[in-house]
Design a protein around this nucleic acid. Structure first.
Ligand SMILES: [Zn+2]
Ligand SMILES: [Zn+2]
Ligand SMILES: [Zn+2]
Ligand SMILES: [Zn+2]
Lengths: 142, 142
DNA sequence: TATATTGCTGTTACATAATAACAATCATAC
DNA sequence: GTATGATTGTTATTATGTAACAGCAATATA
């Protein structure tokens, strides 16, 4: 485990404990794998990286992490990314996905969130969660 | 097949022929199933609705339809929706998904597209396709 | 301490979603 | 007619995600 990951895990431990949530071994291990992973892993990539766990274990931990706002699922990649920023709406996700170098970058652009909310007011639609996944070429690959 | 679907299919036939694309039987049948379907089908729902086709046939037709801008894949549902609007950017999709009644509505809100494009200018990211899928409660279910 | 109760884990089996590979067929051009 | 490339039919396989249930661990109650 990377040194920075170890610190992050400790911080998460404190935060979850304060919330009365349990940061059990499989959850901690999956989170650490997500943080250490070079790239944006799919569930079975995590299974493989961890060595001897079963898919069900990983899926359950991922469900927990996503529910706690510690990870996002990237729908158009079937992949998962850790998120340790404390932004306000963790049910929303914004990703830039480079189709050349496969770099995946999370945005936290509140202006976009606000603009969409404003645009949808007239529809009378109550937003619960937003999936915004933008594919293209990153600045390095352009 | 519904009467309106028959017209739509005929219109698509003309459009594709003009482009030099072939609207073969499986492609036509899958498109008709998409148009007639009550709800937003997954690939295997289409397989079932069509009766005796194989999944591979349906997936190939869906790939074609999506490439032609005649259908969208809804990533967060693993589902497919027909699209016969001639909006400018068929690689972009905007959907409102009601989590109660499961109604799925496509938007074509250019203001949102433009706003996102403007916001991403500074990132130097070249947008190829956008996935915008907003989950929540529709006006009927609020 | 005993003992419910609840949530979490381990394990197996299964369900759903999508693709690979290759032969056969069809459409078009020469 | 024959060649060429695109499309289809078919089978098998891979990839992704859940159901079900027994056992275990943490917390609550007595
Ligand atoms: Zn986030
Ligand atoms: Zn790139
Ligand atoms: Zn559309
Ligand atoms: Zn609704």
């Amino acid at each position: 485990m990377q040194a920075k990951t170890k610190e992050t895990i400790a911080a998460i431990e404190r935060k979850l404990t304060a919330k009365g949530e349990r940061f059990t071994a499989p959850r901690r291990q999956v989170m650490a794998t997500l943080l250490d992973y070079d790239g944006t892993p799919k569930a079975y990539d995590i299974v493989e990286a961890m060595g001897d766990v079963k898919p069900m274990t990983v899926y359950r931990a991922l469900d927990f992490l996503v529910a706690q706002g510690l990870a996002h699922r990237i729908e158009s990649l079937n992949a998962y990314a850790p998120c340790v920023e404390s932004h306000c709406a963790h049910k929303d996700s914004q990703y830039l996905i480079c189709e050349k170098c496969e770099k995946v970058e999370e945005l936290h652009n509140h202006a976009i969130d606000d603009f969409i909310a404003k645009q949808l007011l007239k529809d009378g639609f109550k937003i619960e969660a937003k999936v915004i996944e933008i594919h293209g070429l990153c600045s390095d690959c352009t």
